[in-house]
């Protein structure tokens, strides 16, 4: 630490750096130096591009059957690189489409959870007292509801609906985020720079969003990166149970569920979507791990 300070002081003397580098920028630089995480990031980007652009490059649609190829194994000659299913639909097209749905669900649900979780947790943590008690007991009650039961109930009441699925997952995922953010806020709010802001007369709600939330970037980014795979897995699980995305729409979970039924006769229907899911989850976990190392400066 002192060494780092010394070298900075030298740079100042030489006038080398004209603008500063924030802690977040420094963390991202450390992330870029992490080869494993960068490789995972490239795989993720490749998967995202494939999921969103790939379908336009394919001659097959995810819902229209190819009357010439039912239950066709993967082959280069027919153009069905991943094979086809019982209805003659191209598995590559369906897998790409499923990946897209899974990614969108994860992204929307994560953004919802960040938005609600950070605001809720930071406000509860900073203001403390009764407000904190009330807000966090609400979180506890939500936690106590069995997750799956909650989603299933929603499905039963409102019918099966992809958007409802997004909302249900997002509305539950923010709970953990709120707890994490509240904990971090409690430790930040006793730091002297918060006291300095109070002494300067800054309004409490401004302090929360101007001084506390920006300092939560590290934990929030890390947790969000770990939430995405969790949501993808949850969505897959719900779809597998039959509560998620329904035919002819599809998601990775639905594809895997369908593939599992015919594993013995049409094994490729399981292997390809499963491989994509694993690649997606692994790369996200690697990125989450890399971010945690990068933001946790104590190890450096």
């Amino acid at each position: 630490m002192s060494n780092a300070l010394d070298s900075n002081t030298e740079n100042e003397l030489n006038g080398e750096l004209s603008t500063g580098r924030s802690l977040t920028e420094a963390a991202l630089a450390r992330f870029r130096a992490n080869k494993g995480a960068m490789a995972a990031l490239f795989i993720l980007i490749f998967l995202i591009l494939a999921a969103f652009l790939g379908p336009y490059a394919l001659p097959f649609n995810y819902e229209d059957p190819d009357w010439n190829a039912f239950k066709s194994p993967p082959s280069i000659e027919t153009g069905h690189y991943f094979g086809t299913d019982q209805n003659g639909r191209d598995l590559l097209a369906r897998t790409l489409y499923g990946t897209r749905v899974s990614l969108i669900v994860a992204l929307v649900a994560t953004l919802v959870s960040i938005f609600i979780g950070v605001s809720f947790g930071a406000v509860a943590g900073y203001f403390g007292g009764r407000l904190d008690q009330a807000m966090m007991r609400f979180v506890d009650v939500m936690y106590a509801l069995p997750y799956i039961l909650f989603v299933i109930l929603l499905m039963v009441v409102f019918g099966r609906n992809v958007y409802l699925l997004f909302a249900a997952i997002g509305a539950l995922e923010w709970l953990t985020m709120a707890r994490i953010v509240r904990g971090q806020t409690l430790s930040i709010k006793h730091r002297e720079f918060i006291e300095a802001a109070v002494a300067a007369g800054v309004k409490p709600i401004t302090i929360v969003f101007r001084h506390i939330v920006p300092n939560l970037v590290g934990p929030v980014v890390i947790y969000a990166a770990l939430t995405i795979p969790e949501i993808i897995a949850t969505e897959s699980f719900l779809s597998y149970l039959g509560f998620g995305v329904q035919e002819p729409l599809t998601s990775l979970g639905t594809l895997i569920a369908d593939g599992a039924d015919v594993l013995e006769v049409l094994p490729w229907l399981l292997w390809f979507p499963a491989a994509i899911l694993v690649a997606l989850l692994l790369s996200l976990l690697f990125i989450g791990d890399g971010l945690r190392d990068a933001f946790d400066a104590r190890e450096h």
Partner: peptide
């Protein structure tokens, strides 16, 4: 009335620039 703290690093918001920190009281008052 203002206050200066013991730990110079801890008393400044790590996510804000020096200029921002010094400007803040001015913006309020």
């Amino acid at each position: 009335m203002q206050i200066v703290f013991q730990d110079p690093l801890a008393s400044l918001d790590p996510s804000r620039t020096i200029g921002y920190s010094i400007t803040e009281p001015l913006g309020v008052h």
